[in-house]
Nucleic acid binder design. Sequence first.
DNA 1: TCGTAGACTTCCGCTGAGTGGAAGGAGCGC
DNA 2: GCGCTCCTTCCACTCAGCGGAAGTCTACGA
Lengths: 255, 255
Amino acid sequence: MAGNTSPPGATVTSRTVALLTAFDEQHRRLTLTELARRAGLAVPTAHRLLRELTSLGALARTPSGEYVVGRRLWDVGLLAPTPTDLREVASPFLHDLYAATLATVHLAVRDGTRVLYVERLAGRRSVPVVSTVGSRLPLHATGVGKVLLAHAPADVQAEVAGSLTPVTVHTITQPGLLRSQLQAVVADGYATTVEEMTLGACSVAVPVHRDADVVAALGIVVRSLRRDKQRLVSALKVAAHGIGRSLGAGDRRSR
Amino acid sequence: MAGNTSPPGATVTSRTVALLTAFDEQHRRLTLTELARRAGLAVPTAHRLLRELTSLGALARTPSGEYVVGRRLWDVGLLAPTPTDLREVASPFLHDLYAATLATVHLAVRDGTRVLYVERLAGRRSVPVVSTVGSRLPLHATGVGKVLLAHAPADVQAEVAGSLTPVTVHTITQPGLLRSQLQAVVADGYATTVEEMTLGACSVAVPVHRDADVVAALGIVVRSLRRDKQRLVSALKVAAHGIGRSLGAGDRRSR
DNA sequence: TCGTAGACTTCCGCTGAGTGGAAGGAGCGC
DNA sequence: GCGCTCCTTCCACTCAGCGGAAGTCTACGA
């Protein structure tokens, strides 16, 4: 009666991917049992798959036996088109912006109803923030998020407005207020937040255009906006414009 | 007689990984037939696996039907321990270094007998170079490569010295010359190249220590070394020292 | 307009690769 | 020593995966 009771609709491929995607920001090293549980697999099955993945270089093992993401997967991941192209093109502009402001600089795109951070520059003297490259945060609570939301399709805006979860006491939770702010973002060409994501941190962000489309948002985080908001906005706009122009020129062989 | 003639030793997992790793720097978008060929699979098999991978978000399709690496894979790849931790820790030091030199800044580790570039900062006015993040270059033809090679085990040094392929007319091709240069690198604490990888580009690089081990190399690329080599070397050493100290402090929960 | 070539997609019967329960270590704390 | 937890290996059953063949779509040249 030794046998086989495969869960419905689970192909080997999906099992493999399930194992790989069991890793996340909070779980960068996992044990066999934990991986099996997170991927919904029997322990021996997980063990065999993990051994294969390890020998192929997709995963690696720590000295203590835990599994971590391997270098080969890092390689392949870097080839993902949108983040990489954006990063590559934007890089010099981000450095200039950092040099000019000494603030934390963010480049982000929209991923469904969240902001996905594609690049982050932070100096040692910058305001501490929660974002890291690859992390996702709510659209309504960050500067880059508001920019991306303001230029998102109506159904996305509706979905976000339907569940405005607070992060700090200053996070926007009223759909009407959000709507009017988004209109202002489109009109003014920039968005701001004041302690809506992190207490003690404010942000300014502008859209990055490629032709008519908004493909990304560029933002900075500072301690206060009182002093020189206008200077920051214009520095951001210059950088965003430069990125957009380089992006337009850079679409080699995309039909 | 419809049947099954699976190649020996090919598991589904290895097929999946073969498909994913069929992508590289030069082939960031591939067609079905090309992928099947590169992974050594029958076209219908590749087709089915690719469809699964696409629906799972590991791959994506361009409007024209080609396959590209998906965002989910990018996510997972970012969790690979070594490159990410290094990047994260080194980031502020790299920016400072860039600000101080305006040169292209490289952070690299050794991957077998090649240099693996983990991070690159390039300004708009920097010397153009071939490296991108994730690319691998020969150890003997770059500044960071020489540093890593000088601190590599003897067998790696021997293997590299055994096949010194020239890149430019200035690339080192004599094992004896390489050996003496590597000794100098260890003694002096820095390495230089003069047009050995790219004509018109010189580089300086220093090791990044974590305790006694050399875990990475930090380098910059400039047009000429005549002018202020000593200033560059000391700027590099300061940054490398800072990175090493932060690394030592930053090894939370690694047994 | 039609024919041809090439690449993509769907179908389906055979079979061996994948499955997971069970059992055998290994390490640790009490 | 004893029990607990986690990792690893084994193995018989069976269904998931395989790929040849056939059908579809698109591009291009006559």
